[in-house]
Amino acid sequence: MTEPSLREPTMTELSLREPAPRRTLVVKDCGDSAVVAKAVGLDSESAWRLVHDLADALDAVQLPGVHGLVPTYDALLVEFDCAGVDHETVRRVLWREAARLGAEHRRSTPRRFLVPVVYGGEHGPDLPEVAAQLGLSESEVVALHSGTDLTVRCLGAPAGAPMMDGPPFPVPVPRMASPRTRVAPGSVAVAGRQAVICPMPSPGGWPLLGRTPVRVLDLRDDPLTPYRPGDSFRFVPIEPERWDAYAGVPLADCVELPGAACADASRAADSDVAPWADSDAAPTCRPDTPSAASHG
């Protein structure tokens, strides 16, 4: 395959033809130490997949001087040390890897996290207001939020928060008029057509529906987050009385595994009976494991 030309000054386009869909990528310099690649002319799913596939490919190259790859919904920011590598070199490698992408490229197998959540009350103070905005009951909001798998699209602030597709609410959820100065870790929030779990204390303006007692983030972990774009979260409501059973359990222990403790939660989440109505249907997430006790 002939390598695409790199002689354009600040912007260039490359069309990658595959059986479906046609992929188009626009690349331009971004300041003195970054290049941004944006997918255009694609549906949202194809654009997301293109930039994340490209990020995986660049990560495998380990180009000296590149210290940051930030894929989002339809763009990839490549950050580098301009004293060690220049824009032209980064663009050359980017185009080379883009040209190599094809139908044979496969991302890692996505995982499914089953996450217990206490909805409403002190843990989800905005649930009543969100229900009123949507014209639904609080139970209906909980059922929609916990009734489908939500895909992680990118990692955001703070500290690699999982930015997910939102639940199938009838209309987007507006952000709060007055943001909070502190949101507790584990808080489950929604805004627009997105959903997120706050991994650490931080300010925030997204309405809070509930909170998970599991430990989302531990700065000692490597990698820092157990999830990555492409994984999915399924929220399973639990009663407040069961909070202590899950407090401090690592989020990594809530990955669905065949035959593991979380398998019961998977069956409950996929059943026709709303799992939030039955505390016994909540995921166990192996709360009695040594790891939970040592990190609590």
Rank of each mutant, 00 (worst) to 15 (best):
residue 1 M to K: 02
residue 3 E to I: 07
residue 4 P to D: 12
residue 6 L to Y: 04
residue 11 M to D: 01
residue 12 T to L: 15
residue 14 L to F: 15
residue 19 P to A: 14
residue 19 P to Q: 10
residue 24 T to C: 13
residue 24 T to P: 00
residue 26 V to D: 00
residue 29 D to P: 00
residue 31 G to R: 09
residue 31 G to T: 06
residue 34 A to K: 05
residue 35 V to E: 01
residue 43 D to F: 06
residue 45 E to W: 10
residue 46 S to D: 14
residue 47 A to N: 01
residue 53 D to W: 08
residue 54 L to P: 03
residue 55 A to E: 09
residue 55 A to Y: 09
residue 55 A to V: 10
residue 55 A to R: 11
residue 56 D to N: 10
residue 58 L to Q: 04
residue 63 L to V: 08
residue 65 G to F: 12
residue 71 P to F: 10
residue 74 D to L: 02
residue 77 L to N: 10
residue 77 L to R: 12
residue 81 D to T: 12
residue 97 E to H: 01
residue 101 L to H: 03
residue 101 L to D: 02
residue 101 L to Q: 01
residue 103 A to V: 14
residue 107 R to I: 00
residue 110 P to L: 08
residue 116 P to I: 07
residue 122 E to Q: 14
residue 132 A to C: 04
residue 137 S to N: 02
residue 147 G to A: 06
residue 151 T to L: 11
residue 157 A to P: 00
residue 158 P to I: 05
residue 160 G to E: 07
residue 160 G to L: 10
residue 165 D to W: 04
residue 167 P to Y: 04
residue 169 F to M: 07
residue 171 V to A: 15
residue 173 V to L: 08
residue 175 R to K: 13
residue 179 P to N: 08
residue 182 R to P: 00
residue 189 A to E: 07
residue 194 Q to S: 11
residue 194 Q to E: 14
residue 200 M to T: 14
residue 202 S to E: 08
residue 204 G to F: 04
residue 205 G to I: 06
residue 208 L to F: 01
residue 208 L to C: 03
residue 210 G to E: 02
residue 217 L to Q: 04
residue 224 L to N: 04
residue 232 S to D: 08
residue 233 F to Q: 05
residue 241 E to Y: 07
residue 241 E to A: 15
residue 250 P to R: 11
residue 253 D to W: 13
residue 262 C to E: 14
residue 263 A to I: 01
residue 265 A to P: 02
residue 276 W to E: 07
residue 281 A to V: 00
residue 282 A to D: 00
residue 282 A to W: 00
residue 283 P to A: 03
residue 285 C to P: 02
residue 288 D to G: 03
residue 293 A to M: 10
residue 296 G to C: 10
